[in-house]
């Protein structure tokens, strides 16, 4: 059971060059994969192809061995700007929209809706509130609840933390962690993946529409995405002055490593 992309290319109508060129990728059940790269590197396009929202101009995508259009229920997708998705009168209707579309019986819809709202950590008191009146961070959570309500096996999140404040980012990171722990396969596109590096299994780096790195996150693969951080920089400096620290992405992980090295 896996999601497979073979030699996928995509060109937007009227665009000069392809947004994605011959990308091949296999994502196993339960993996947390972060797709990163600069703006315009093709992150959104790639995950839209993988989710079957757009059809590759070349190559093929299969989801658990099926064509994406036959596997719609296996896929959940939250777009970057939640206000583009939200349109119902209440949070409850908004989240129930997906399961209703799937033609499920009403009591099953209610059960799934409640579970999804609990999973993202929104208070059930907000179920009768209009989604548009919520803060930006809450809208993002509602949009994710919508994407997971029908219990997809694969969840795609496009820039889930962009534009959020510290609390919002922390909540999103925690939510991704708990979804992974619950066995969901999560694929995140992000231009700023530092928060997720300690918990992700794989980092896929795109540059100009090509996959230039795919594997466990490393300083080298981050460099290919043009991403560096003070923590990475300091680890390098410490190594060159004789303190033998491990490669680390978060300051907390580096602190652990420094304590070890100084012992």
């Amino acid at each position: 059971m896996s999601l497979k992309a073979e030699d996928v290319s995509y060109r937007y109508p009227g665009a000069g060059g392809p947004a994605i060129s011959s990308a091949s990728l296999e994502i196993g059940k339960g993996e947390l994969v972060v797709v990163c790269g600069k703006n315009g590197s093709g992150k959104s396009t790639l995950i839209r192809c993988l989710a079957g929202l757009i059809k590759p101009s070349q190559g093929r995508v299969s989801i658990d061995g099926q064509a994406p259009e036959k596997a719609r229920r296996a896929i959940g997708f939250a777009v970057q700007f939640p206000e583009r998705a939200l349109f119902e009168r209440t949070v409850c209707d908004e989240v129930a929209f997906g399961p209703r579309n799937m033609g499920l019986p009403p009591d099953e819809v209610d059960r799934l809706t409640g579970q999804a709202i609990d999973a993202v950590g929104i208070s059930r008191d907000l179920m009768s509130v209009a989604p548009r009146s919520l803060s930006y961070g809450r809208k993002r959570l509602v949009a994710i609840a919508c994407a997971i309500a029908h219990r997809p096996g694969y969840l795609f999140l496009d820039e889930p933390a962009a534009g959020l404040d510290y609390e919002g980012r922390t909540r999103i990171t925690g939510l991704i962690k708990s979804l992974k722990a619950a066995g969901m396969t999560v694929i995140v596109a992000s231009h700023d993946p530092l928060d997720l590096l300690d918990i992700c299994d794989r980092l896929v780096v795109l540059d100009g529409g090509r996959v230039v790195a795919d594997g466990p996150p490393s300083v080298e693969s981050l460099g290919r995405a043009g991403i560096t951080s003070d923590t990475i920089e300091l680890a390098r400096r410490l190594q060159s002055c004789g303190i033998n620290v491990r490669e680390a992405f978060s300051p907390e992980a580096l602190a652990d490593s420094i304590v070890e090295a100084l012992k």
Partner: peptide, 11 residues
């Protein structure tokens, strides 16, 4: 892009 967002929710 809104249409794509709705298609992503099964519309």
């Amino acid at each position: 892009s809104i249409r794509l967002a709705q298609e992503a929710r099964g519309v």
